[in-house]
Design a protein around this nucleic acid. Sequence first.
DNA 1: CGAAAGGCTCTTTTT
DNA 2: GAGCCTTTCG
Length: 724
Amino acid sequence: MDILAELNPAQKEAVEAINGPVLILAGPGSGKTRVIAHRVAYLIRVCGVNAHRIMAVTFTNKAAREMESRVQRLVGSSTGNITLGTFHAICARILRSEGRAIGINPSFVIYDEDDRLSLVKRSLRDIGLDPKQYAPRNIISAISAAKSSVLTPRDYMEQGHNYFKEVVGRVYERYQQLLTESSALDFDDLIMKTVQLFRENTGILGKYQERYLHLLVDEFQDTNLTQYELIKKLGGKYRNICVVGDPDQSIYSWRFADVGNILGFEKNYPEAKVILLEQNYRSTQKILETASSIIETNQKRKPKDLWTENEAGELTTVVDVYTEQEEARYVVNEIERLLSEQDVHRGDCAVMYRTNAQSRTLEEAFIRYGVPYKLVAGTRFYERREIKDIIAYFRLIQNPYDSVSLLRVINVPGRGIGKRSLEQLSDWAKSRGIAEYQSLQLLSELKGDEQPFKSGIKNTLIGFVNLIEGLGRRSQELNLVDMFDLVIKQSGYKDYVLAGTGGEERWENILELRTVVQQYSDLEPLTGLSAFLEGVALVSDVDGIDASLDAVTLITLHQAKGLEYLVVFIVGLEEGILPHIRSFDDPGQMEEERRLCYVGVTRAKERLYLIHAFRRSLMGSSQSRDASRFLGDIPRHLIKSGSFWESGEPQLVKSIYSPDKGPAGKMNNDIEIMTGDRVRHATFGDGIVVSCKPVKDDGEVVVAFTGAGIKRLLLSYATLEKVE
DNA sequence: CGAAAGGCTCTTTTT
DNA sequence: GAGCCTTTCG
């Protein structure tokens, strides 16, 4: 196969420019993933570069997997050991093998957002501040900002002062101490520590610089300063750095991604070759025009010419609905209509929204109408309490100094270790400057007056240490699934979870985790354990999308980056939602909201629906909302109104009596009442349906009767009959 | 000590 | 509307 054959001139140029830095500015749907895959294949097959000497960084694990299979197909054999993955996964690997040089325990655990939160709260308490007064989330964010620019606590504190910074600086310092005591790294540390490793050890850096002849980074517009420095360092010797991205799709500034990385690339690498990919292969002309009209409103932006040879296609459908329930119902109805009238499958459709909370109403509608869907994220599987508990045991087996995990499960299932005892334990450990587990290990050696516990509780604590030590010993020889069963058995978790509320379902979840564990059971025991823990720490929600399942995808706009669907619904296009209210007082943020909308729109290949509701309940109370300003950016001639109000098309209200339980994939068509229908009522006589509105599991219809006037009726009580 | 109930706050996006 | 935390009671 000729690797260059199926590429357009710009793409070909991007693949062939293998010497020196290259900046590829790639519009949506311009085949950038393709270019990266082809470029890697070209390096291996045509240029004879050893795969071992190539690093390719992707935004998600899913993208990495896809990249691997594409390259494999192009090269025609196994890709060899190319370094391929997210920044986080790649850095975790480097730190496991080299981290010792900067004092990192190779068995380190990776702390997620949740762990981070509890550690920040503890840090606040440790320095004598009240976590309720200092919004731990803001502090996490400030620490994360620091780490995204490679600032240590000391660097941070030298950055000038104000009240908040002073507090953050002190918390950051304590937080970092606790992480070190726990042999733990948070997400930001994975990158930052790798940079520190390379800064402080020119020998190690030299080794990696020598190895990586070629570097490729996808979604470069969403990298932060630390990631940029990492790439700069790794490419320091050969300078064959190829970065790909699109400033118009930069949507992670809140995670301290710096679009300056891509905008300033030419300045930092004056010899860089710049290639523009502007031909779009994904969307119809109308969709592309809609997208352009939205993004062009942004002031701070380099104009670019996106074009396509695809057909003109359908107009964008803008839909005006009453409430979020009606919005959800519209989406479900419309998908079912497309399924029956067009060559569309459920798997071709996606519903996108700004906030996770919006998925709930959608889910309810999909369940009610029995339409299969796949929810990306929501309450993620790995965030469930029982799953986190079990994983905490595994983390303790790998690294008992992990204090977040220790405090999480030391009394789960209940062992009679209460709050007071835990406080004593933490204080005692803190006064000695060691991790909780280390102080627990001392217990059996110390006499009564040398430690703070009474003998009853002391023995319980020693019992817990023995449990973990025992599991640790067995983990050297048992495969992971046997280990799993042993953990469940020895911890007594099964009885515990079954006794609690929702026990059955939670136990099911644990069994599902067991099937995940099974995938690691062929590995050497200790390798399997760490591979499993690394896997669960670094999964992203989109990694789990099952492409073989023919179901509608429900996904946030952020997660949708890089994906494409035949039919896209973007819901909640309202002021305060998209754009989100938090962006109102900052023009920069507002531009990011618009980019987010742009990302969503450009996911669509053939059909695009933009939906806004007049009324939406948020945090309990229902409020009326204006349509999003982004809708106003779109010229009228690109829009077709899908609205009931404007088009006068009847609004369907289906199967309000018989929620769910329909066979999967089938709508319950038995009862169907639309506005405009003629109906007959036993006492009121004949009339016309004026409006329909869902109320819980019921429906409220307003009917104008010929004799009796306008009546408001509940479907479950009123016996209505359709009249032709 | 643990479970249950009540009251509080805060809601963006995630590797 | 939910989750988190505190309070209360057994």
